[in-house]
């Protein structure tokens, strides 16, 4: 990894390497905590692209093995959906084939 601190790590929420390193230095050393303070991983892709990178940055910066870095939490819905879909709930099986 190079030193360009202004590159985005989480492109959905536009969180830079600098912001993530700052959070780690402030003591946020799990992927979940970094997400809570920086919003990295809270965007459209829900961390599918960046959470592995963030775990690696935490491991490098804290000198801990990667497998000791706690992962993010997984919550539903796992895809971005409109509230419209929740409102339009279909119960009739006949309409579902």
């Amino acid at each position: 990894m190079t030193d360009d601190k202004d590159m985005f790590i989480c492109r959905c929420e536009e969180v830079t390497l600098r912001e993530i390193e700052q959070a780690i230095d402030e003591g946020f050393v799990t992927v979940k905590d970094v997400k809570r303070v920086t919003r990295a991983g809270m965007g459209l892709c829900q961390g599918r692209t960046c959470s592995k990178t963030i775990a690696r940055i935490i491991a490098q910066r804290t000198g801990r093995p990667l497998e000791d870095v706690l992962p993010k939490s997984y919550r539903f819905p796992v895809r971005p959906e409109k509230m419209l879909a929740v409102e339009n709930e279909e119960f009739n099986d006949a309409k579902n084939s």
């Binding site: 190079t2 879909a85 339009n88 279909e90 579902n96």
Partner: peptide
Amino acid sequence: VRDKHTSVTIHAKRIILATGANENAVNFPG
């Protein structure tokens, strides 16, 4: 959610997840 429009809850006696994998990113300026 079907067609980004309608939600359906399916009661399944068994669920088989075959969701695959996502590509890893490599980060560099640019």
